[in-house]
Design a binder for these strands. Structure first.
Lengths: 194, 194
DNA sequence: AAAACTATATATAAGAC
DNA sequence: TGTCTTATATATAGTTT
């Protein structure tokens, strides 16, 4: 008699969901959906997948088959010998890497500063310049080696997130103010939520 | 009059696809699907997502969100004190953390047993969803500072890509055979188009 | 804030090109 | 491997419990 019980699934535009409640629910539902898809891919094709998600509030969630942690662990775990936590070679390499990064960073800083002054390029450009995701092409060519490094970084990243979240946050203000507006209590972070 | 033109989508069990061709096709299709989902999550909820996938052959693919690199960089940059790269306490704490992670991991392994992926979402098709790059939203919230770091990170990342691309690739042989059928020329990679 | 529940929008298995 | 099509399996928006 009455038309329908519910409106059923409605079409929505792929743009930020303004209503906070809806956004949160959607975030939760879709995150689960992605995990499911990921796990199916693993099972169906024997692939390995890791998914890292940060809620808009800044909380980390992740899913991974051998798992993000697994791979990172294997890597870090090695140097993680019984007595000596950091393998000298690894540390050394890392140090160098960081120094390089900093240099690179400085250079870019200058360029971007100029860029910004000339008219905040990134903000308004918006549309079409993104015809092809920047990660597409290059990533395809990544070596396993690279990926491992990236994984290790993620691991590190996560770890530090926990350690630092509540403590060091006086990093100059600027850097930390961006996201997670509301007090990130985040004392017990769901590490790998399935 | 003939019944149907095709059988349409058929139900399949979530278990390894034995036929290699089918498996590869499925891997490709689903990977794309996951990337799309990931990008939608980013756009809809302002989340940050990174997906890392290894094809059964060992070839890496990924879909990434800026914050990954951005945050990682900020972190690494920190402990990157002028003189001492690894603070003993931090190291110690890390060790414990990893052990915990491993345990956690073992537990989870039992529950999940699969995850994998596939990619490429916004690319080009479907016009409308790409009206706004997935990174737009989150980027808006990023401080210039963040952006700069992110760029540095990406730069570094890409650079290594090039350097290693032709060299270390003997990772088991299998890795190179799978995808990227067409010669990955990829000489001029679109770095980070802002 | 989680489950359940529709009704519908999407993703995709099969094929064909 | 990419692309397209078709018929169907799934994911999920909106609502309710």
């Amino acid at each position: 008699m009455e038309g329908k019980q519910t409106k059923g699934r409605q079409k929505i535009a792929i743009k930020r969901i303004e209503n906070e409640d809806d956004r949160l629910v959607t975030f939760s539902k879709r995150r689960s959906g992605i995990y499911k898809k990921a796990s199916e891919l693993v099972t169906l094709c024997g692939a390995e997948v890791a998914v890292l998600v940060f809620s808009p509030a800044g909380k980390p969630f992740s899913f991974g088959h051998p798992s993000l942690e697994s791979l990172a662990n294997r890597l870090l775990g090695q140097n993680l010998a019984p007595n000596d936590s950091t393998h000298p070679l690894v540390e050394a390499h890392r140090k160098v890497r960081i120094i390089e990064l900093n240099q690179k960073h400085s250079e870019l800083l200058g360029q971007m500063e100029a860029e910004r002054d000339r008219g905040k390029a990134l903000k308004e450009g918006t549309g079409e310049k993104s015809s092809q995701g920047w990660w597409e092409a290059p990533i395809d060519e990544l070596s396993l080696q690279e990926l491992k490094q990236m994984n290790a970084m993620l691991e590190e990243f996560h770890k530090h997130l926990y350690e630092n979240k509540n403590q060091l946050r006086r990093n100059g203000g600027a850097s930390s103010s961006s996201f997670h507006a509301h007090s990130g209590h985040a004392t017990n972070i769901p590490f790998c939520q399935l």
